[in-house]
Design a binder for these strands. Sequence first.
DNA 1: GGTCAGTAGATGCAATTGCATGTAAACTGG
DNA 2: CCAGTTTACATGCAATTGCATCTACTGACC
Lengths: 154, 154
Amino acid sequence: MPDQEHLPDVRTTAQAWESLFRTQVAVMRRMQGLPEFKKLSMREYDVLFNISRCPTGWTRLNELNEALLISQPSLSRMVERLVAKGLLQRRTAEQDQRGIEISLTEEGRELQRIIGREHVRHLHEMIAPALSAEEFGQLQLLTEKLRNGLKRAD
Amino acid sequence: MPDQEHLPDVRTTAQAWESLFRTQVAVMRRMQGLPEFKKLSMREYDVLFNISRCPTGWTRLNELNEALLISQPSLSRMVERLVAKGLLQRRTAEQDQRGIEISLTEEGRELQRIIGREHVRHLHEMIAPALSAEEFGQLQLLTEKLRNGLKRAD
DNA sequence: GGTCAGTAGATGCAATTGCATGTAAACTGG
DNA sequence: CCAGTTTACATGCAATTGCATCTACTGACC
């Protein structure tokens, strides 16, 4: 081990978390009203976005659920609604007859792209003035490291 | 201005935000099931916590609303429920007869403290292994700076 | 191969949420 | 001072959410 890094105490971790959390709230709150989220709520967009990131294009419902804060029954019904809107398609998983796989339809993919572009543009306007490029880079590294280092849920 | 810091591009800001957001989701998701949130949902606890931070002990409803992601009618009714549970008290504001001020009751303050202690303890267990004390400090500074530097909502 | 525990989603139902709108008080310009 | 606008919160109501539970399938053990 190179330099001695001392372990964080409770105050340090609590304050850092609180600051991160409040920042997330502040940004989300400003984003809520923006026009791109008129057609789809932010939660729904987040579902489309997560699916769009899957290499194969298909995800298992339970896997998707882990990336979201909503409960399993809520996701189940949200997917139902998004299928009804023509934005998603479902199929039963090959190797596990209990499982459901979902993917974006062409329409869903297109809507995700449209909203995504607007979203990124507005996000950039909102947060870019606050930090330098170097600081954003540090922030990304620190949050990635934090996320990857979380103690496994028991 | 000392060194030349270059301005962040769109990719840089979007990736940093996404990483922060995903980290927040990962932590919140693990927190949801913990026993301290059996008596009160996380949203409700967050309300008590925010009020507990007010120097005077009283807050205006609209001011409190700005620190939360829920809508104004939702907060209005959540406060109603928390008053019914005996955790909050309400009064009309002195200088503005339209306004409502709320504060914790003794019972509410005590419950907030109990949940808060458990929460901080579990949070620490969960995230402390991920970063050093110095890194948590950097994370706090960066998120504070980000929050304070957000472009004003139009 | 049959029983039993565990996992993936679906569903009934009550509670919570948000949207649109309502009411009342405060501000504003003449 | 008074009409018109804005602000703060409440309320009707439909949509969404979560909890508890159910069904169907899987995997393990014997």
